[in-house]
C-alpha cells in the first residue's frame, strides 16, 4: 500500500465520519457544516489524482456557494432540533454497505490509469451546447422559482 492509497483512505474515512455527523447531529446548522466538510474531503481525494479543475469546481460551487447557502438557511431555521436517526433503517443500510464493499473488493481486479488531464479546456468547446442548455435550464428554473415565490401571499 503506497502513500497515495493511505491518503485516499484517510480522506475517505474522514468523509464518511463527517457524513455520519450529518446523520447524528440534532442541529441543522452543524449538519450543514458537516456536509461542507464531507465535500472538502471529496475534493481532497480528487486532489490526490491531480484533477485540479474538479477540485476547483467542488471547492467553489459545492463548498463556496451551495454549502454556504445551505449553512445560512440551516442557521436561520435551527430552532427546532429533533432526533433524526431512524434505527429501524440502520440494519438494512449496514447490510447493503457490507455487500457493496465486498463486491468492490471482490470484483475490482484491474488497475486503472488516469490520462489526458489537460483536456479540461477542450470541454467548453466539445460540450458547448450542453453548457448553454444547462445555463438556460438554471435561468428558467430561477425565473420559475421567483414567479412561484411571488405568487404566494405573505
Amino acid at each position: 500500500m503506497n502513500i497515495e492509497t493511505v491518503i485516499i483512505a484517510v480522506a475517505g474515512i474522514f468523509a464518511v465520519a463527517s457524513s455520519i455527523g450529518v446523520l447524528l447531529t440534532r442541529d441543522n446548522f452543524y449538519a450543514a457544516l458537516y456536509m461542507s466538510v464531507t465535500m472538502i474531503f471529496v475534493a481532497a481525494i480528487y486532489a490526490v489524482f491531480n484533477l485540479q479543475p474538479v477540485v476547483v469546481i467542488i471547492a467553489l460551487i459545492f463548498v463556496g456557494a451551495v454549502g454556504i447557502v445551505t449553512i445560512a438557511i440551516a442557521a436561520t431555521y435551527r430552532a427546532r432540533p429533533s432526533r433524526q436517526v431512524s434505527l429501524a433503517w440502520t440494519a438494512p443500510v449496514v447490510i447493503v454497505f457490507g455487500i457493496l464493499a465486498y463486491a468492490y473488493y471482490k470484483f475490482a481486479t484491474q488497475d486503472l490509469e488516469i490520462t489526458g488531464q489537460g483536456v479540461f479546456p477542450a470541454v467548453a468547446s466539445d460540450y458547448f451546447f450542453v453548457v448553454v442548455f444547462l445555463f438556460s435550464l438554471v435561468v428558467l428554473m430561477m425565473l420559475s422559482a421567483i414567479k412561484l415565490a411571488r405568487r404566494v401571499d405573505l
Partner: peptide, 16 residues
Amino acid sequence: MIDVDVSQLTVILTVS
C-alpha cells in the same frame, strides 16, 4: 498520468 490501483479503486467506491 496517474495509476489508480485496485486498492485505491476499492477505497473510492466503498467511500462513495
